[in-house]
Design a binder for these strands. Structure first.
Lengths: 201, 201
DNA sequence: AATTATAAAATTGTGTACAATTGTTTTTGT
DNA sequence: ACAAAAACAATTGTACACAATTTTATAATT
């Protein structure tokens, strides 16, 4: 059923995770041969992986990105636009399955482990994004995920206050079909994430 | 100064242009060896090119895209969000160089050849997008350009009425620092492009 | 000592062979 | 004639060799 991972895919995942775990420092030059040796594959799949990582913005000019505050703000400005739009569609109509999904995310946010909370936080936003029913929008946010993840670790590991309550309020607006309210809440929610990320930078 | 084109770059351009010129039909399967032979290079640069084209959405699953009306609408929804935001920043402040650039685009739109008009049309939007001063937003729209271009041919070759007048109105709003007006005009401008594209589909 | 020129090394780009996979036809059995 | 199986063909994935380019180190000139 599930096609097995190719060497390119595993190379991609390993390099990506190594960047997340800061095994490779910010700004470090990544060379194909070095990575190929470390992963025990040839340069070809490594090249594929690096191209994908460049696409996602995790690598730039063969170097691990070292995002500035401005990059962070730019990313969030785009997120606010896209997720603000998405949550409007969600408020217009969202099926019971997805509503339940959001409720579960809130639950986990209240009583899960740190790792579970991070996952639930991401899933909450993912469900709303998918509710946009716009593949272009979905793909665009998907591509931003890696960079966002780099920042989200900060936010959740430091346990930003009121995060779950805000999710709850957004969910309520969705259930009540309050589009304006949902968009407004989502944007201020993301704005707080941004501010929190900047201050704990 | 200008680094010369690599085989990957020229392969990318040639395949892309061939798709634009419909030398390859919508939905046609593109195989690496066939393209490599046609371009007189090995598979390696062709693979690079195809990956980039997939990234841009011109190829999907090794096939030339055959976009649906929904794809078109999705693309424009995202465009409206991003360019609406960009034109706000432009209206807040835009330097004299860029203002002049926009004016030249309007001029060309009035009295240029069809090909020049197309170029000026794109440049008009590009200048505004760049004025957002947000690299994430710029890159995102940049990536959408190929698909947009596929549609824009339709719009300009059929000479949509009032297109230049709308550009002029947007420019005026920018010069008068009317953010709300600029955003509103840009969104309705794009909406008309969308409707026109759909009807001449 | 600083700057330019030259050589060496490292890195990336490209071609090509072969392996693995996928897709297509042919064969076989009922 | 149809379904299943086997053989074959086509396509993509991966490794590796070599070329082209870029970077770094070394030498030469003022």
């Amino acid at each position: 059923m599930n096609q097995q991972h190719s060497a390119s895919d595993t190379a991609y995942e390993k390099i990506r995770d190594a960047i997340f775990e800061e095994k490779y420092e910010r700004g470090e030059k990544l060379t194909e041969v070095k990575l190929a040796e470390e992963l025990g594959v040839s340069r070809t799949p490594v090249r594929d992986a690096m191209r994908k990582l460049e696409e996602e913005g995790l690598i730039k000019d063969k170097r691990v990105i070292n995002p500035t505050i401005k990059d962070l703000m730019n990313t969030f400005d785009v997120r606010m636009l896209l997720e603000g739009f998405a949550v409007r569609q969600a408020a217009r109509y969202m099926g019971p399955d997805r509503i339940e999904g959001l409720q579960r995310c809130v639950e986990t946010g209240k009583q899960g482990t740190t790792e579970e909370i991070m996952e639930a936080n991401k899933e909450f936003h993912d469900i709303i994004v998918r509710a946009s029913n716009n593949d272009v929008l979905i793909d665009t946010i998907e591509r931003m995920q890696s960079v966002i993840f780099l920042f989200r670790r900060t936010v959740v590991y430091h346990q930003r206050p009121r995060l779950i309550e805000e999710h709850e309020a957004i969910l309520e607006a969705i259930q009540n079909h309050e589009e304006d309210q949902a968009e407004s809440l989502m944007k201020s929610h993301l704005k707080k994430d941004l501010d929190f990320s900047i201050h704990s930078w």
